[in-house]
Design a protein around this nucleic acid. Structure first.
Lengths: 132, 132
DNA sequence: TAATTTAATTGTAATCATTACAAAAGTGAA
DNA sequence: TTCACTTTTGTAATGATTACAATTAAATTA
């Protein structure tokens, strides 16, 4: 399914900036920050505003078609893959990697309603582990 | 074990501000922010600096006796309880609640070394679920 | 104890990600 | 075209965090 179709299905008008940003996230599974999205796209679309990137990732995240990754204090990252998987932050090189995971077995307090579930690990990636 | 003893055991000199801050976190299991810690303690210790709170929670977190909770974009929260449990952010009222959880069954890429593991859920707490 | 070194704390000033907001541009209907 | 509405943009705030230099406190040495 095209990005425009997915946006439309979620009642988001598939304007050019929105399609570009969503496309970028679907094609770059590196958990980019707003700055990375903006820097890459503004080369091809010089009129793009960073505010639009902020607005759009918030919109896509609220619609549930993009996940906001808050594994770092400094800035948020975004992921268009909403299938179940964990995120691993290498505190040496700063990279964020996917890993396979189940959901944990959780007992929530009574009456709580779940919207999102995230599994975050930190440590050292293979490359940085070897250097230490 | 007293806070001072725990600090000493981790080679952290138990200065007054450090003991106060660690004590505060051990007694207030509400996942306070730096601002909340500072506001509460500065009433009794007017000379306390917010920078010291930042320095100290970073120090305690690096020592592994405090967990940094990055479930929100806006600001970090801190938790002196390092036993296994999940954190639930109510996106309506902003509260952060503990819940019982196992660790998920994860397959990490080869060679990765794990330092911390976090399970974050978002949604609505019981109180806010009822209002909706 | 006094002098000296080292570590911890403080206050202020930056930094920088994010948001607020109002103006400009785009879109669609009548 | 004109009007109403939505989206985008640029700039200016906001606010959490960090950098840094100065002060204070603690530990060490003579």
């Amino acid at each position: 399914m095209t990005s425009a179709e997915i946006l439309a299905k979620h009642d988001i008008k598939p304007s050019l900036p929105r399609v570009l940003i969503f496309d970028y996230l679907r094609q770059h599974r590196t958990h980019p920050t707003v700055d990375e999205i903006y820097s890459s796209l503004s080369k091809r679309v010089p009129t793009l505003s960073k505010t639009t990137v902020y607005n759009t990732v918030k919109l896509l995240s609220a619609a549930g078609i993009v996940k906001t990754i808050t594994i770092e204090e400094q800035q948020a990252r975004y992921d268009a893959c909403t299938d179940l998987h964990g995120h691993f932050l290498c505190t040496d090189c700063g990279g964020v990697f996917d890993f396979d995971t189940s959901l944990p077995d959780s007992r929530l307090p009574h009456g709580f309603t779940v919207k999102t579930q995230e599994v975050y690990y930190t440590g050292s990636c293979e490359h940085c582990s070897q250097k230490n």
